[in-house]
């Protein structure tokens, strides 16, 4: 059970980095096939864009967050922090982004979700729009997002040997900075 929330007692370093790269490429391929793009740190949208842009954004989101955690962890840890452990474990957490965005690649779900969104955007009265696909997508994504937060926080704790209030604050700060930075970069890249 503990492995479900913290697999990093078992995997880190180069092995996690290789898996992280594999998961990021797999996620990018699914995004390219389904015309999805990452336009924020934990924000994804339906967007038909160049494959290299999707690949670049997915990598940037991972690396920026990992680097921010490394800087925060190295500053407060009494252990010798290896950047490969931080980048690797955060990379391994990218696995959760694949099921998180399942609603985008399952055709029936995607179609009903897109239709509901289109109807709202085109000004159809909310009571005439089926909210079920949107709510289902929200709940589904939220479950995986919570697990992603748990994994990435545990990745930070294990790879930097930090814990407690200071670690939580540094993690939140890294998350906020990454959110701002990735959103700004997405605007530049998808222009």
């Amino acid at each position: 059970m503990s492995n479900l929330f913290n697999p990093f007692h078992r995997i880190a370093g180069v092995k996690a980095l290789v898996w992280g790269e594999f998961f990021t490429i797999a996620l990018s391929v699914l995004f390219i096939i389904s015309d999805v793009a990452q336009d924020g740190f934990m924000h994804f949208t339906l967007l038909d864009t160049a494959a290299w842009k999707v690949l670049l954004m997915n990598h940037l989101a991972w690396l920026i967050f990992a680097l921010l955690l490394y800087i925060g962890g190295a500053a407060m840890s009494r252990s010798r922090v290896r950047i490969i452990d931080v980048v690797g474990t955060i990379g391994f957490s990218q696995l959760l982004l694949i099921p998180m965005n399942a609603g985008f690649y399952i055709p029936a779900w995607r179609a009903s979700f897109a239709e509901s969104i289109n109807r709202i955007v085109t000004g159809v009265m909310p009571q005439e729009v089926s909210m079920l696909p949107i709510v289902a997508m929200g709940v589904w994504s939220m479950i995986w997002l919570v697990l992603f937060v748990a994994w990435s926080y545990n990745a930070f704790c294990v790879s930097c040997n930090v814990r407690g209030t200071k670690a939580v604050i540094k993690f939140i700060v890294a998350w906020v900075i990454a959110s701002v930075a990735v959103t700004q970069l997405a605007k530049l890249i998808y222009l």
Binding site: F8, H9, R10, I11, A12, G13, A16, S79, R80, R82, D85, T89, V158, S159, N161
Partner: peptide, 8 residues
């Protein structure tokens, strides 16, 4: 176990 775990 992973390397950082034993190092910790």
């Amino acid at each position: 176990l992973s390397y950082p775990t034993v190092r910790n």
